[in-house]
């Protein structure tokens, strides 16, 4: 819904990183969007593409990957993937669960040359 603002936040972090590598050229940006992060990967990739096109590295590739949710049950310790928004533990039925993956929006890596 607000992926243009998110894309600007991603880009600020890319630009800050590239300042440390000012002699290099950015060729690829990889971003990970957790399934429960609230962001839409396709819209974010589109918005980031617009920022890249206007940057000093207009040919850099943008890859936004959706990350599935993985949970841990605090009751029985089981680690399991989320199935269709069922987050409850499939082993013991417990609802006291913690997502260990799939909630974040993060800048995974850059490729430079």
């Amino acid at each position: 819904m607000h992926e243009i603002a998110l894309a600007h936040a991603v880009w600020r972090q890319v630009a800050a990183e590239m300042e440390k590598h000012s002699d290099r050229r950015l060729t690829q940006v990889r971003v990970v969007v957790g399934e429960l992060s609230g962001a839409d990967p396709e819209s974010l990739e589109f918005a980031l593409g617009l920022l890249v096109a206007e940057s000093e590295w207009p040919h850099a590739a943008v890859h936004v990957r959706k990350e599935p949710v993985v949970l841990v049950c605090r009751t029985c310790g089981r680690e399991y993937p989320m199935q269709e928004m069922r987050l409850r533990c499939p082993a013991c039925g417990g609802a006291d669960v913690e997502p260990v993956r799939g909630t974040q929006l993060r800048l995974e890596s850059l490729e430079v040359e």
């Binding site: 603002a5 993060r106 800048l107 995974e108 850059l110 490729e111 430079v112």
Partner: peptide
């Protein structure tokens, strides 16, 4: 020479 820089950094927005 292409080089991959691994970051794994959480995106911090202005609102954050």
């Amino acid at each position: 020479m292409a080089e991959r820089i691994r970051l794994e950094k959480k995106i911090v927005t202005e609102n954050d």
